Amino acid sequence: MKIIRTILGDIPYNEIGITDSHDHLIRSGGPEIGLDKAFLMDDVNSAIEEFERYIAAGGKTMVCMDPIGCGRNVAKMIEVANACRGKGHIMMTTGFQKGNNYCPNTSFLATVDVNKIADLMIAEIVEGMDYHSYNGPVIERTTAKAGLIKAGTSYRLITNLEQKALKVAAITQKETGCAISMHTDFGTMALEIVGEIKKNGGLPEKTVLCHMQRNLDKYYYRQVLETGAIICFDEPNKPQYRPDAVIAETILWLVEQGYEKQIVLGMDGGRMEALAAYMEEKGKANGLEYLLTRFVPVLKEVGVKQSAIDNMLIYNPANVFAIEV
């Protein structure tokens, strides 16, 4: 039987519904906040309102990609999920971000044996996530289980620490059947990531490569998709980088090339100004519902058929995030 592991429990994989495959509702701390305070999103009520806006627009499931050491807050996310129980599903991740978020000398990712780290990740999937997200010597497991694995790589480089995290991710995948969802820095190193995962016994077809729209090279995408991996386009509503139409036209080209079963979509709001509920005191902003209310219409406008959109939003996430139990 195939299931989706949400933080409130397992559901049949065909109940996943419309899915935002890469996003953020709560980030309580972490290195990114030192770079920009807009990364701090730590209010439960705002997160509930944001998720409800997404649900009201037709969304059903949100994959929240905050990993260990980067502001993941299990307790607050459980509050958000419980507030929306019966209306929407939330998945959370175990694993790591790119290497510069962890000390290469003293972090437990750096100092602990690969298999022991993998055991910690596996426990978060099969037993329950640690309330403290492994930030110290005390482990207190919650009932909420992680539903996928995260790893990350640097710009044009997979550091030694990141290679270790990829090995951990592949081992964890072999033991649990969970998908691996990758942070790629500006869409680089995708082919090398797949190579590392395969080398360590992981599955390309259960590997999601995120942020690929930051490297808008459709012929590169074709190479990546030929490995069997999944590409996540997760950055509409960021015109300072590229217009929505450019992403949509690239997706259309890939669909026409026969790759519609290997694409998923997300918003990756990531920062306070991308979540309308967090911005209410300052004014009116677009929230994560933009994926459905604004970006999907652009996909249709450029010629992407509804059947392909359904694959990218419903059936592809159901297949890649499903776990065999």
Rank of each mutant, 00 (worst) to 15 (best):
D20T: 06
M91L: 14
E281Q: 13
A110N: 05
I122N: 07
G30C: 11
K174L: 08
A75M: 13
Y259T: 05
A276Q: 01
M62D: 00
D20A: 03
D119L: 00
K2R: 13
S46R: 13
H89N: 15
R271Q: 10
I18Y: 12
M182G: 08
K150D: 07
L299R: 03
E235H: 11
M65F: 04
I3M: 15
V320N: 02
V296I: 14
A144V: 01
A322Q: 05
G258T: 05
M92W: 07
V298A: 04
V44S: 07
G269I: 08
N100C: 13
E50C: 08
I48C: 11
T142N: 03
M129H: 05
I309Q: 06
G201E: 12
L291Y: 00
D217S: 08
L225Q: 03
P67W: 05
I171R: 00
R5F: 01
P104H: 07
K305I: 10
Y221G: 01
D310Y: 06
M279N: 09
V74K: 05
D43V: 06
D217L: 06
V255M: 08
I193N: 00
M65W: 06
L203G: 01
K282A: 02
C64D: 07
K284H: 13
E235L: 13
F39G: 02
E124F: 03
A47C: 12
R5V: 01
V320M: 04
D268N: 11
A285W: 04
A308V: 10
I117P: 07
P31M: 14
L252P: 00
I247E: 10
